[in-house]
Nucleic acid binder design. Structure first.
Lengths: 220, 220
DNA sequence: ACACTCCAAATTGGATCCAATAATTTAAAG
DNA sequence: CTTTAAATTATTGGATCCAATTTGGAGTGT
C-alpha cells in the first residue's frame, strides 16, 4: 500500500494519516476491529509503528483502545455528534473573534476561492474542503493549539457527514451561510461573524442529527 | 519506583499518569530531555510502554516529540498560557451553561466542600483541587468529551501555577470568585455563572502571565 | 437442545535485538 | 590555539521474539 518507506521517524505519522483518512471517509466502518497484524501488512511495516499510531488516534477520539483486546474504530452515536458540535461552536466562535481583527482581504479572498471549489467538488471532498474553508478564516488569529483542537473536532464531525452528503438542501444552506460569513468578514464585523459561525455550526449539527437518527432507525 | 507491575495492558497508562504528574508539578522541568532508557529503569519496564506513554503525553501537549531525537518536556511560554486560558474560557463557559440546569444542591455542596479544602490545602495540591472544584460543577452536564478537554487544559495551565503559588492575593481572589460562582449556582443563575466563570479564568490568566513574565525576566 | 468446561488458535502486550541517526569526543590541520 | 573532520558513543526507530490474555470451538454432561 505504501511502497516507499519514507524517512525514519515518520512511519507512525504516515500510518496515522492513512488510518485517520480511512476512518473519516468510512472506508473503515465504525466499530470495526483494527488488527495490528493486518494494518502492519497493508503499510509494509511491523506492528510497532501501528501500535503508536493507534495510540495517537485514540487521543484524537477516532479509535477506542480496549486493553488486551485491541482497537476498534470509534462507534458513532448521536451524543458524540451533539457534544462535538457544541465544542465546535465554542471553539470556532472564539477563533473567528480572534481572527477577524487580523484578517486581510487577500486571506478572505482565499477562503472565498475555497468556497467556490466546495460548490463543484465531489461529495467525498466536502469534509476536508469545509475544514480548509473555516481554518483559512481562523489562521490569522495565530492560535496553533486552538487550530489543532478545531481540526480534530472537524475530523470527528466529518464522520457523520457521510450520511447526508447527497442531500442538496444541506449543501445549499451551508453555501449561503458561508457566503454570509464571508460578507461579515469583509466588513470586519466581529459580532456578526461570531453569530454566523455559531448558528452555522448549530444548524449543521441539527441537520446531521436528524439524518443520523433516520439512518440509525433503518439499521435497527 | 513502581514496585508492583500492575495488570498486563495498563502499564503504559500508569507510566502516563506518573510522568504527567511529574511534569505538572515541575519535578520534570520544562525543556528537560526524557530518555526512554532512563524512564524505563525508573518504571521497571522496557522502553516499549514508555514510548507509547510519550506519544499519549505528546497528544496532551505536555511533551514534544522530536523525530530521531527523542522527547522533551514541553517548554513553557507566555503564548501557550494565553491560548490555554482563552480555550478554557470558551470550554468552561459552555460547560457551566450546560451544567447549571442539572445541578442539584447536593452537587453544589460537594463543590463547596472542595473549596473549603482548597483554603487550607498545601500549595502543591492547589492545582488538582482547583480542577476538581470546577469539574464537580461541570459533571452534571453529562459531556464526557468536553470534560476530558477541560481537564487537559487544566493540566497545561497548572504548570504555570508553580510560579505564583505563594502569592496570597492570587489565592484570596480565587477564593472569593469561587464563592461568587457557588452562589450563582445555588440561584441557578446560568448567565451569571457563565460570566463569573469567564472572568475567573481570564483574571487568573492575567495574574499568571504577570508573574510568569517576571519570572522569565529574572532568568534571562 | 442447552450449558459448561477445557483446549487450541488468534491476538495483544512487553522484552529484546538490530539498524539508522544524532551527539560527542578525538584527531588532525591550519 | 582554534577549527574542522573523523570516529566513537549514545539514543532512537523499527523488527522480531516470547509470554499472557482472550476468543472460538469441540466435546461432555445434564
Amino acid at each position: 500500500m505504501i511502497p516507499k518507506p519514507p524517512q525514519r521517524g515518520d512511519r507512525a505519522q504516515h500510518v496515522v494519516d492513512h488510518i485517520r483518512e480511512a476512518i473519516i471517509t468510512g472506508t473503515l466502518p465504525p466499530g470495526s476491529a483494527l488488527r495490528q497484524e493486518e494494518l502492519a501488512a497493508t503499510h509494509a511495516s511491523s506492528r510497532m509503528p501501528i501500535r503508536e499510531a493507534l495510540r495517537t488516534l485514540s487521543a484524537e477520539g477516532l479509535v477506542q483502545l480496549i486493553p488486551n483486546r485491541g482497537a476498534i474504530v470509534a462507534p458513532i452515536d448521536v451524543e458524540e455528534l451533539r457534544e462535538t458540535c457544541e465544542m465546535r461552536e465554542a471553539a470556532e466562535a472564539l477563533a473567528i473573534r480572534l481572527s477577524v481583527p487580523h484578517l486581510s482581504n487577500a486571506q478572505i479572498d482565499l477562503a472565498a476561492s475555497i468556497q467556490k471549489q466546495i460548490e463543484t467538488a465531489p461529495p467525498e471532498e466536502l469534509g476536508s474542503l469545509n475544514k480548509e474553508f473555516h481554518c483559512t478564516l481562523y489562521a490569522p488569529a495565530g492560535r496553533p493549539r486552538l487550530m489543532a483542537h478545531i481540526s480534530s473536532l472537524h475530523d470527528i464531525a466529518d464522520r457523520y457527514l457521510r450520511f447526508t452528503l447527497l442531500h442538496l438542501d444541506y449543501i445549499d444552506r451551508s453555501t449561503s451561510e458561508h457566503q454570509a460569513l464571508l460578507d461579515a468578514c469583509y466588513r470586519r464585523d466581529v459580532e456578526e461573524a461570531m453569530r454566523l459561525t455559531s448558528t452555522h455550526i448549530v444548524e449543521a449539527g441539527k441537520t446531521l442529527e436528524t439524518y443520523l437518527r433516520k439512518h440509525l432507525e433503518t439499521r435497527l
